[in-house]
Design a protein around this nucleic acid. Structure first.
Lengths: 336, 336
DNA sequence: ATGAAAGCGCTAACAA
DNA sequence: TTGTTAGCGCTTTCAT
């Protein structure tokens, strides 16, 4: 194995000069730098990661904790992971993959052994058991998602309020005047500041702003519940022509129910959803939707972490702008 | 930070004794071990990963290279990655995530900097550009998939021949007497020892063994080609009642074509496929299929790597037994 | 602009 | 069964 002293000897300089040439942490004369670079190439030198980590107390590795829960959309996770790796590489860092399963002990282990410099935690729950630990660790972290109490933590996620707004704006733009939100199961709204509530806020505010008649309907995640909601909507809001769905499992049965009740999508009813693109695309009627911008979330999470590692202050909350993808479930309102 | 000397002092022993107590590389008296363990707990000691790696020239980290190619089934990759992490942890190793995108330079980097001890490479192509590098690296690797020339490499994959056989056996067991294989595009068969050919071998051998009439049909990955094959099969093999499909993108259009031609699946025609479970499940008619056992492949790949790291010899080729999942596309042959 | 030298925290000979 | 000690290869003060 070729080491830094070999390079130093070959280039006729001291090891520290090679080190500084590599890190750029102090000025090196152009000529010396050239010689060093030539020696490095010629000898095929690669600094030993462990030695570096030991001497500099920086491993240049980030931990990424991925969820295993069923109900999480796997392609979203994968896309996210890839974007984290890509972004990390741009900053000369690598990514260590941890599974949720490892739990708090896993986080503590990679942090306390100095195996990683910082952590990215996906799928953060409202009352996540890992929060106290993340606050206590001596290395920075970024959470994907917002827990109920985010003080002292750095979080990033889709701007769900803006997403709710955007869905309504699009429906309004298509001429719809009566809209409904089919939301998450009731219990989701109960436990404090949830992203589900943010959707409701955005939905309601935008409906108001646009002078639309609107209503909000929490919905259990079952086909039967979807069917009931569809019937209720037709009964109570006969003029309804626009629906926003923020409840993945219910999306398909809901559309089916509407059609069985004699409403064509998008002929009689326009539907927009907040859900992964894979879900929206794969439905019988591909649904106009807003997805979590996973690649952007990953890249931004890494940027935040890098700034924290540089000792800079970063915002505690980062909200990403929603992007709506037009598909087959939306159309202009029929002439009355 | 608490270090090994702190633990040693606290326990009244030397640092090396603590080290040996931790690694088990030499016998420690029960009493001493107890004292050391107590000190470790009390002080909250965690060995520094970088220092360890430097002193022992083992990082206890494996690299996992995941594909980005479109056409690769993402859930399969993810499931595989999770099983690699889980298996690695059982052997006290962590997993560094690399993307295909990083290419050979990425492999060389993590190997030459001693960031990882060994590598797992997914989605190995028949003539993979990384093969020479993997052979030349000073650390062991395991490939998922078989390249055309696998000498000097350790590979693992589904036993595609056995998969071809198993499909036929199932159809034969259901009473089918005339079967066809709709295979990969023709060019796949041209370029040497491919997994596609292994399927053909198994299919043909099993058909023979069971006294079935059989035929093999390479097929382009397009709906039009699927349609043509369907028509051709009906024309040339009117008694056909069993089809094996080893061509993912063609699966759905092929079944559609059969039904448009008046054949019910599985009423008139039984279909089995070799494809990811996600694909098989999501079709209009869920298809009886054999999937790549990703979790098992991941776990086995790690085991192989561990044995190589221990200096043991391992087989160059590991073939995993296929497992067939019964779904809605197969039924006993109609009484004639 | 460069060099000398002291560690970083651990492992593994070598000794006893 | 345990201790002593010399590195592992690099970074970073402190000097010059």
């Amino acid at each position: 194995m070729v080491k830094i002293t070999d390079v130093a000897r070959h280039a006729g300089v001291s090891p520290s000069t090679v080190s500084y040439a590599l890190s750029g942490k102090r000025p090196i004369s152009e000529e010396t730098r050239q010689r060093i670079e030539a020696s490095i190439r010629e000898l095929g030198y690669r600094p030993h990661a462990g030695a570096r980590a030991l001497a500099s107390s920086r491993s240049n590795v980030l931990a990424l904790v991925v969820p295993l829960r069923t109900g999480i959309h796997v392609p979203v996770v994968m896309q996210f992971a890839v974007s984290v790796v890509t972004a990390a590489r741009r900053h000369d860092h690598d990514v260590l993959l941890l599974t949720q399963e490892e739990g708090e002990e896993g986080l503590r282990r990679v942090a306390d052994t100095a195996l990683v410099d910082a952590l990215i935690v996906m799928d953060v729950q409202l009352h996540d058991a890992r929060l106290p630990l993340l606050r206590a660790l001596d290395r920075p972290s970024v959470l994907i998602g917002f827990p109920a109490a985010a003080e002292g933590l750095t979080c990033i996620d889709l701007d769900f309020k803006a997403a709710g707004e955007l869905c309504v704006e699009r429906l309004a733009g298509l001429g719809h005047r009566v809209v409904a939100l089919v939301g998450s199961p009731p219990e989701v709204y109960v436990r404090g500041t949830a992203f589900a509530q943010r959707v409701v806020e955005g939905f309601t505010a935008a409906a108001h702003r646009n002078g639309l008649s609107s209503s909000v309907h929490p919905c259990e995640a079952s086909p039967a519940a979807a069917r009931r909601i569809a019937e209720q909507l037709l009964r109570e809001h006969p003029a309804l022509t626009g629906v926003v769905v923020h409840n993945e499992p219910v999306l398909e049965p809901l559309i089916d129910a509407f059609e069985q009740l004699g409403l064509r999508v998008p002929g009689d009813l326009s539907v927009t959803a907040i859900c992964p693109d894979e879900v929206a695309e794969s439905l019988r009627v591909p649904v106009t939707s807003i997805a979590l911008p996973s690649a952007e979330v990953g890249a931004r999470a890494v940027e935040l972490l890098m700034r924290k590692l540089d000792g800079a202050d970063v915002p505690g909350a980062t909200l990403l702008a929603p992007r709506l993808t037009e598909r087959a479930s939306t159309a202009p309102r029929n002439a009355p």
